[in-house]
Design a protein around this nucleic acid. Structure first.
Length: 441
RNA sequence: GGCCCGUUCGUCUAUCGGUUAGGACGUCAGGUUUUCAACCUGAAAAGAGGGGUUCGACUCCCCUACGGGCUGCCA
């Protein structure tokens, strides 16, 4: 039974990078008929906010990533305490008293001497008397996990064989002086308890994985299979973290990006499979393969979302946009034709407003100097409204007859005069919707 | 500084020693369409640099450069 999880910490809005992780885990679970858990990693009480939890759920719902189970770490504190006790009992946990300032100084010294900045285990064998002395100074102890200093190896689902020497990593702090359980421990306990079998996360967790494997083993859990995807960078290869604020799911949604466009891109970007618009979640699941992803950092350009959004909108039936049309004030009787005409010419739903304004109010005509006479002559031949399906064909035929113009030289000036734009819907279909011809006067 | 990963067309990438280095997106050019778009066809476009190993290297090894990550009493 495959079980995956998405474990965001609610300290901000989720962004495209988070989505990529969430989606991969979701697709793996769905592909195998397994379970997808949404786990709120809210052990950090100071930074976690309920507002972010709510928005996170809204984002996932909007995207259609349904979770089978939801968990919150803040509700599982006693489980972490039990795990800590058993680590203490087996001698893998030790209490230390260095202050952040002392640790910082130590690291700087090590760096200056050209040594790796790894915790030196100075407080590893502290006696009870020594601990009491530190406490007498007003210090509070916190707890580190004692790593076995051997090479830790695993076969990563994306990176392939990875080998990290535990000696190059500091013994991780798992419980803070104030008693707060840290991510490294909470995550491992949860993954084990919840039966998580596959973990896909960003490659920023690679080193964590090494230490977590040892913790899982110490606790007697089964080591899940890990896959670390590359991190997204901006179009120039710059770290995306600087712009992540602007790339929240919430904001992309506000910009008019459609869920399937976003999902289609994120399920393929960085893989060797082509990015192609998928119509629904099932197709996405069908076409997903984690082994196709590469280890190199992946450039992400949010502009790529818009062509996909446009393409997606073109596939939508009237029902999918009728609410949008109604709120624009498009009469129900005109809605089917309007959607037919407009849908090939919009990037986002918001663009509908412009086309409707054109139909309702007409457009400021654009008439080139050399076409002035031609357009005037043509307008004289344009019948009074309302127009129908035949109007454009009959009118242009008459204009052709009268002026001798044909092809682009015939049509483009008329398009510009009527719509003010060189690009736009099929004129024949648009004519019946045009209620005002401003070029006429 | 240390550790881990990476570097092939503009972009995402294929190639598990021998290929005209392939595809997708984008770009450009034609074509089709009495207009726009769509569509069809075609084209341009790539192995970071230097050493090895080998009959032969994009592919294996080493070095350098560059990019990303980690190096927290954050996640």
């Amino acid at each position: 039974m495959t079980t995956t999880r998405f474990a965001p910490s609610p300290t901000g809005y989720i962004h495209v990078g988070n989505l990529r992780t969430a989606l991969m885990n979701y697709l793996i679970a769905r592909k195998s008929g397994g379970t997808f858990i949404l786990r709120i990693d809210d052990t950090d009480q100071e930074r976690s906010k309920e507002e972010y939890v709510d928005q996170l759920k809204r984002d996932l719902e909007w995207l259609g990533l349904e979770w089978d189970r939801i968990e919150r770490q803040s509700l599982r504190l006693d489980r972490y305490a039990e795990a800590a006790d058993s680590l203490r009992a087996m001698g893998r946990f030790y209490e230390v008293f260095e202050t952040p300032t002392e640790l910082d100084l130590k690291r700087k010294k090590q760096l200056n001497m050209g040594k790796p900045p790894v915790y030196d285990r100075a407080h590893l064998g502290l006696t009870e008397d020594q601990k009491a002395a530190f406490r007498a100074e007003g210090r509070e102890g916190y707890w580190r996990f004692k790593l076995d200093q051997e090479r830790i190896e695993w076969t990563d689902g994306i990176l392939g064989p990875i080998s990290i020497d535990a000696a190059s990593v500091s013994d991780p702090v798992l419980i803070r002086a104030d008693g707060q359980v840290l991510y490294t421990l909470a995550s491992v306990v949860d993954d084990t308890d919840m039966g998580v079998t596959h973990i896909v996360r960003g490659s920023d967790h690679v080193t964590n994985t090494a230490t977590q494997i040892q913790i899982i083993q110490a606790l007697g859990g089964a080591v899940p299979s890990f896959a670390h995807h590359s991190l997204l960078t901006g179009p120039q290869g710059e770290a995306l973290s600087k712009r992540l604020g602007a790339l929240s799911i919430k904001d992309l949604r506000a910009q008019g990006v459609e869920p399937m466009a976003l999902l289609s891109l994120m399920a393929r970007l960085g893989s060797s499979d082509p990015v192609e618009l998928r119509g629904n979640m099932d197709e996405l699941i069908e076409g997903f393969d984690i082994t196709r992803f590469g280890a190199a950092p992946t450039k992400f350009d949010e502009q790529d979302l818009f062509p996909l959004t446009a393409k997606h909108l073109q596939t939508l039936p009237l029902e999918a946009v009728s609410a949008d049309l109604a709120s624009l004030g498009v009469p129900a009787a005109l809605a089917p034709r309007f959607w037919e005409v407009a849908r090939d010419n919009i990037t986002t739903r918001a663009d509908l407003a412009g086309w409707w304004a054109l139909c309702r109010d007409g457009a400021a005509p654009v008439i080139a100097e050399e076409d002035r006479d031609f357009v005037a002559q043509a307008l004289a031949l344009l019948p009074e409204g309302p127009f129908d399906d035949q109007t454009w064909g009959q009118w242009t035929a008459a204009v052709k007859e009268a002026t001798g113009r044909k092809g682009k030289g015939l049509f483009m000036p008329l398009r510009l005069a009527l719509t003010g734009q060189a690009h736009g819907p099929d004129m024949g279909a648009l004519m019946p919707l045009l209620q005002v011809i401003r070029a006429r006067r």
